[in-house]
Design a protein around this nucleic acid. Structure first.
Length: 275
DNA sequence: GGGTGCGTACTGTTCGCATT
DNA sequence: AATGCGAACAGTACGCACCC
């Protein structure tokens, strides 16, 4: 009875327009066949219409289209299910990666902080070392013995011995002055870094310890020896002079380690110089 | 009332097979 | 080899029901 009513309703639909919707019973019958065989032959479709009364009012062409669309729907559903599965896996993976990323970000922040702290420690430590280094250069004449003076006296009676002392002194300067201005602590009124060559730069017309030292180490040992022998030039602009140490030579002569302050410099702190 | 999902039907293309 | 035919498939149009 119900099937007959549905059939009548379908006929009305077919009469009104081409759109029909199969009844649940018809769909169930078609689904049963589909589960057995998704691709029924033409013969099988005709047999289905004959054997199933509720499908008798459906055209063979419609049956064919129904199976066609049914296969298409299953394919789409399978693809949709596959994509959902992939999506779930990717979401889970994304969550894990986000957590890992968060953990690494925190680790980076911590390391950056530690790096900054260690840099700060290194800088303060380096500054202390540089200050000491400079002080050792500048103040060594006041507070320390010249390394050359601590060693057994060299033979200053001969030009060769004097040159040896001069070379040793130069080596001490060079060990401090081989770098650029970075290795020197710049002081007010002082020229940092290597200076021009010139004998006058040692005791006159110079503006600081660094300039004088660099000027001195730029000289040949023979030139240094000439400067050391030109003692009157040492005192020309000198307002303060102390003999720190005296090295006796083999022939009765002496080599004096002298600390002096020159008048031309206005700032005492930068005028310390020893040679 | 408009947006959306689903089912049905149609169209165009490709492929396999039989025939000529 | 060329041709015709049917089936399968992908894409699309349309109608309906449902939801907000």
């Amino acid at each position: 009875m119900a099937a007959a009513l549905n059939s009548k309703h379908q006929q009305q639909q077919m009469d009104n327009n081409k759109y029909v919707r199969y009844t649940p019973e018809q769909v169930e019958a078609l689904e049963r066949v589909y589960n057995e065989c998704p691709k029924p032959s033409s013969l099988r479709r005709q047999q289905l219409i004959r054997e199933c009364p509720i499908l008798c009012n459906i055209e063979p062409k419609q049956i064919k289209v129904w199976f066609q669309n049914r296969r298409c729907r299953e394919k789409q559903r399978k693809e949709s299910f596959r994509l959902q599965t992939v999506n779930r896996k990717l979401s889970a993976m994304n969550k894990l990666l986000m957590e890992e990323n968060d953990r690494l970000q925190k680790q980076v922040s911590h390391l950056v902080y530690e790096n900054g702290y260690m840099r700060q420690q290194l800088q303060s430590s380096s500054a202390t070392t540089t200050d000491n280094s400079c002080e050792s250069v500048v103040m060594s004449g006041q507070q320390q013995q010249n390394p050359a003076a601590q060693q057994p006296p060299k033979d200053a009676s001969s030009p060769a011995g004097l040159l040896a002392i001069a070379e040793e002194t130069l080596a001490q300067f060079l060990s401090k002055a081989t770098g650029t201005a970075v290795d020197w602590v710049q002081m007010i009124g002082m020229k940092p870094g290597p200076d021009s060559i010139g004998i006058v730069a040692v005791s006159r017309n110079c503006s600081g310890v660094a300039a004088r030292v660099c000027g001195l180490v730029s000289l040949e040992p023979t030139k240094v020896a000439e400067i050391l022998k030109d003692r009157p030039s040492w005192f020309r602009d000198c307002r303060c002079l102390d003999v720190v140490s005296v090295i006796p030579t083999g022939n009765g002569g002496t080599i004096e380690l002298v600390y002096m302050q020159v008048v031309s410099l206005t700032v005492e702190a930068v005028s310390d110089f020893f040679c």
